[in-house]
């Protein structure tokens, strides 16, 4: 019984931490973007205020069952995936260990499937709203996903083949024992995954899904109020998931929360920095981008891993 209570506590705390970190990173990004544009910018907690406001909207338009479920779907998918991510290295000192939640052996392939689940919910929900912008946004999003999933999967497959494991924890253990981070021992795979992350975070030049001026924010264009707030929370948790996954796989994992924060923040700034100096791509340009060098790097990484 006590074990169960601890597990539930672990799940709740992990979710809260992921949410808070994801939202704060978003806020810091807004502030930094403002500073780069020579503005003062909002506070770094602006995203929390926005969320509070969205949740306190009095009315919410109802667009049918799927439109109602989509935000819930997204946040459920986010929390489910989060449970399978080892946040810190397992089994270090008690004050440095984190709840294992559901992370088990063989979770990498499972994660690859589960990570698109949120997008699927978004696609179905956006489809039901019947807004043409949403439909265009969804097709763009799926095309972009086809683009960046290839280098991403190639990078992960290279790791799985080289170390004969599909477990994130095992890959973390390999790095701990050898003392070399994967980004140094498998640089090509790391680069491929890094390029894929540019598409994953959807900052420019890969903001072709949302494209506020062109598609009126795409899939979410018919979602306001609480729906939008829920989606925003789900998105923040997803950001934390992706960053933690990258840190676990390529940056040697983390031994304590401050270390995790430093590493994830450094990783998060890469798509943000890249976005500041780039305008938006068109869909086919984005796909060509991902199927060019990133995929080539992924293939090279895979070949090195095999031979």
């Amino acid at each position: 019984m006590e074990g169960l209570a601890i597990k539930i506590l672990g799940a709740v705390i992990t979710t809260i931490v992921a949410f808070a970190v994801g939202m704060t990173y978003g806020g810091i990004t807004r502030k930094l973007t403002a500073r780069v544009q020579n503005r003062v910018g909002p506070t770094i907690f602006q995203n929390f205020i926005d969320l509070l406001k969205l949740q306190s909207k009095k009315t919410n338009i109802y667009h049918g069952v799927m439109g109602h479920f989509a935000p819930m779907w997204i946040i459920t998918a986010a929390i489910t995936v989060l449970m399978f991510i080892p946040v810190l290295h397992p089994g270090t000192a008690w004050y440095n260990s984190w709840f294992p939640n559901l992370s088990f052996h063989g979770d990498l392939i499972f994660l690859l499937y589960m990570m698109v689940f949120g997008s699927l919910g978004m696609a179905l929900g956006a489809g039901q709203t019947g807004n043409p912008n949403s439909a265009i946004g969804v097709t763009r999003g799926l095309s972009q996903m086809v683009g960046f999933e290839i280098p991403f999967v190639l990078a992960l497959v290279a790791l799985m083949v080289q170390y004969q494991t599909t477990s994130i924890q095992d890959i973390m253990t390999v790095q701990r024992e050898s003392g070399v981070w994967m980004m140094f021992s498998n640089p090509f795979s790391f680069l491929a995954a890094l390029f894929a992350s540019l598409g994953m975070f959807r900052y420019s030049p890969f903001d072709i899904v949302g494209a506020p001026a062109e598609l009126a924010s795409g899939p979410v264009s018919e979602f306001g109020g609480k729906y939008l707030g829920t989606m925003m929370s789900g998105g923040s948790i997803f950001a934390f998931i992706k960053l933690t996954l990258y840190v676990d796989l390529f940056l040697g994992g983390a031994y304590s929360i401050p270390e995790l924060l430093i590493k994830t923040f450094a990783l998060y700034m890469i798509p943000v920095f890249y976005g500041w100096v780039n305008p938006r791509y068109r869909t086919e340009q984005a796909i060509r981008y991902f199927w060019g060098w990133p995929t080539a790097l992924g293939v090279i990484g895979l070949l090195i891993a095999i031979f």
Binding site: A34, N38, R39, G41, I49, S217, S221
Partner: peptide, 22 residues
């Protein structure tokens, strides 16, 4: 909205669609 007067510092930001707007 842009650099000189920067309304975003007051929490004012553009919304893309009426559904999201206040």
């Amino acid at each position: 909205m842009t650099s000189r007067y920067d309304a975003e510092r007051l929490g004012i930001r553009g919304a893309a669609t009426p559904r999201q707007a206040d």
